[in-house]
């Protein structure tokens, strides 16, 4: 597929053309935070930003999502029987999504959709109706470590299109057929544009100097890692606040709760967190993860051992660095993994 070029003053027209069919969202700034919002025009689009404070997982896995409704009346005809929520009406474009977040969703596809039974229709519907237009990172943060976990600042996995900011224009790389169809009308990129993008990729990758080393983590068994004395130490400072799981693009644990108001009833799924005591407690009161040590261990083992064991080595982390930035007690995932590897 041929790389295209889009001059920045044509971005507004490009968004207009997308809006005919899609709802378009993009990162923008609000009250000092970088958030995801609907982009009705090119105004407010950001070209220089690190990443959104929260991951865009909410688009596919809302923080609170109604799964089914029922008439909360045992005596009514059809009462107390669950009916699924309607599917998403309009397809969406996530513009300027960072490559790490797109990679996270590609990983989550493998968890939400595994086979005929494990087939999360709510996740699938929203994923099928989305186009991801990535914006390559030219200036990664000091907390970024994507290059050491199988991702990168110009990584293409999980994207439909990748944009590379060349200054006055964007190099537009089609990745999927879905993406290609959207940009067929744009002019082809020149060699000089492609060379510049390649150079930016090199510089950007080279600027990411922190990372994790996984060779021993991969070699050690689940039980060897599980029994490391290090878990006592790292869990001491953890508050079990759940900020890391909240901002993480690959954290996907959820709870299911029923809510009723009069005769309206619904079943809702909400983000949950493995940092919580309630997350695993049995009806009998027994809790397999009774202290924060077990819970902290679960989070890191899940991402760096359990998921790779089950998914042909694929790591459950994309190196976005959000948890490093937001942890109130400065637990740094890179340090934790390097200790697991030590």
């Amino acid at each position: 597929m041929t790389d295209k070029i889009l001059s920045k003053d044509q971005v507004a027209a490009f968004i207009d053309s997308l809006k005919k069919e899609y709802q378009v969202f993009a990162p923008t700034e609000e009250n000092g935070k970088i958030i995801w919002a609907e982009a009705n025009s090119a105004d407010g689009l950001l070209w220089e930003f690190s990443n959104t404070t929260m991951s865009p997982k909410d688009f596919f896995f809302p923080q609170s999502e109604c799964m089914a409704r029922f008439k909360n009346d045992p005596k009514a005809e059809g009462g107390m029987i669950m009916h699924p929520e309607p599917e998403l009406e309009r397809s969406r474009v996530l513009m300027n999504i960072r490559p790490c977040d797109a990679k996270a969703f590609q990983l989550l596809d493998r968890i939400f959709i595994q086979d005929e039974v494990t087939n999360d229709v709510y996740w699938r519907d929203k994923r099928d109706k989305a186009i991801l237009v990535g914006l390559a990172c030219n200036n990664p943060c000091p907390t970024c470590f994507c290059t050491s976990v199988g991702c990168g600042p110009h990584h293409e996995a999980g994207l439909d299109i990748l944009l590379v900011d060349l200054g006055d224009s964007l190099l537009v790389k089609p990745i999927s057929d879905k993406g290609k169809a959207l940009i067929d009308d744009l002019p082809d990129a020149k060699k000089v544009d492609k060379d510049k993008a390649a150079q930016l990729k090199k510089t950007s990758e080279a600027s990411i100097t922190s990372g994790v080393t996984m060779d021993n983590v991969n070699k050690r068994t689940v039980l060897e890692l599980f029994d490391l004395p290090y878990w006592d130490r790292v869990s001491e400072s953890c508050l079990n606040c759940g900020t890391c799981t909240f901002c993480c693009p690959t954290c996907h644990c959820f709870d299911i709760q029923d809510e009723v108001k009069g005769t309206d009833g619904r079943r809702v799924r909400n983000w949950d967190t493995c940092m919580s005591w309630l997350f695993t407690v049995h009806g009998t009161g027994h809790n397999p993860r009774p202290t924060k040590k077990e819970r902290v261990r679960q989070r890191f083992m899940h991402k760096f051992k359990y998921i790779p064991e089950k998914r042909e080595g694929e790591i459950g982390c994309v190196g976005c660095g959000r948890c490093v930035q937001l942890c109130p007690v400065n637990i740094d995932v890179r340090e934790v993994v390097n200790q697991m590897n030590a």
């Binding site: 939400f112 644990c253 959820f254 709870d255 949950d272 997350f279 695993t280 407690v281 051992k305």
Partner: peptide, 24 residues
């Protein structure tokens, strides 16, 4: 085995023993 469960289909994350989901 028995565990606290929600989804029952190996996604929601609470019933695992290592990489094995008790529900799935």
């Amino acid at each position: 085995l028995e565990k606290r469960m929600k989804c029952g289909i190996g996604i929601c994350g609470r019933c695992n023993l290592g990489d094995q989901y008790v529900c799935k």
